[in-house]
C-alpha cells in the first residue's frame, strides 16, 4: 500500500517534469488557467495548455458558426484580465454584437481585415510577439508547417495564446499545433416541453492534444460557461485511444 502511494508520487513528479521540460509552456499556477468546465479533464494536469496554437477545423457555414461560438467562449476564458485581443481574418463574417452572448465585450477586440495570406500570417506572428494581448485569433484556411512553427516560437517567448480557425482547409495534415478541435452543431438545449431555441449545444471533438487525452463531448454554453450537454451526464466513456 505504502509502496503504491510512493510509486504514484514518483509518477506524478516525473509527469510534472516531462510537462515542464516540453515545448509547451506549463505553469503550475492553476488559477491562471482558463476554466473550460467539463473539458478540463482532457488536458495534461487538468488545465488547458492555453499558451500554444489551437486549430479549429470547420467545413460548412453551420459548423463555422458553431466553431466561432466555441472559440468565442474560449476567448472569454482567456480575456479575464484587462488585455485586448486581436482578430485577424481575410473573409470575416463575425458579427461583433453576437459576441456579447459569449461574455466577450466586442470593443475589446481589434479586428484586422486583410486580403493576402502572406500578410495575414505576418500580422498574426507580429501580434503573437506582443505580450500585452490576451489572445490572437487568426482565420487561415491553410498554414504551412514552417509558418506554424514560427508562430509556436513567438508564443514560447510571449506566452500569448493563438487560436486558428481553419475554415474549409485543403487538407488536415498532422501539424505541430498544441490542440486541434472540430466543433459541430447539435440540437440546442432547452428544458423539456418548452418551445423555442435554447442554449447552443455542440459536439466538441478534441482531435489532438499534446500529452493529453483526445476525446469527444457534448458541450453547451449556458451564457456564462461551458457545461455538459444533456446526454453527457454519465462520464467520459467515449475517450479516443489515439494520441496526437
Amino acid at each position: 500500500m505504502k509502496q503504491s502511494a510512493e510509486r504514484d508520487e514518483v509518477i506524478a513528479r516525473l509527469r510534472g517534469e516531462i510537462l515542464s521540460s516540453g515545448s509547451t509552456v506549463y505553469s503550475s499556477h492553476s488559477n491562471e488557467h482558463p476554466d473550460l468546465g467539463p473539458l478540463n479533464r482532457a488536458f495534461p494536469g487538468d488545465c488547458f495548455p492555453f499558451r500554444g496554437t489551437h486549430e479549429f477545423i470547420s467545413h460548412t457555414s453551420e459548423t463555422a458558426a458553431a466553431t466561432l461560438g466555441f472559440m468565442t467562449g474560449l476567448l472569454s476564458r482567456l480575456m479575464k484580465g484587462p488585455e485586448m485581443a486581436v482578430w485577424v481574418g481575410a473573409h470575416r463574417t463575425l458579427f461583433p454584437p453576437g459576441l456579447k452572448a459569449f461574455c466577450v465585450v466586442p470593443d475589446r477586440i481589434i479586428f484586422i481585415d486583410l486580403v493576402s495570406e502572406k500578410e495575414l500570417l505576418w500580422v498574426v506572428e507580429e501580434c503573437l510577439k506582443c505580450n500585452a494581448l490576451a489572445a490572437v485569433v487568426g482565420e487561415v484556411p491553410d498554414i504551412h508547417p514552417i509558418a506554424l512553427r514560427r508562430l509556436q516560437l513567438a508564443i514560447e517567448k510571449s506566452g500569448v495564446p493563438c487560436l486558428l480557425h481553419r475554415h474549409r482547409p485543403r487538407s488536415v495534415e498532422n501539424t505541430v499545433c498544441t490542440t486541434r478541435w472540430m466543433i459541430s452543431p447539435m440540437a440546442s438545449l432547452m428544458e423539456d416541453g418548452l418551445p423555442g431555441v435554447g442554449y447552443p449545444q455542440w459536439q466538441v471533438a478534441l482531435l489532438k492534444v499534446r500529452n493529453g487525452k483526445p476525446g469527444s463531448w457534448q458541450i453547451t454554453w449556458d451564457g456564462q460557461q461551458f457545461q455538459h450537454g444533456y446526454t453527457e451526464k454519465v462520464g467520459e466513456e467515449n475517450v479516443y485511444t489515439k494520441a496526437g
Binding site: 458558426a65 463575425l94 458579427f95 454584437p97 453576437g98
Partner: peptide, 16 residues
Amino acid sequence: AATTPWPEHLVRPVSL
C-alpha cells in the same frame, strides 16, 4: 470608448 453600452438582451448571431 463606447458611448452606449452593448445591448444586453438582444439575440444576435455570431456570424452575419
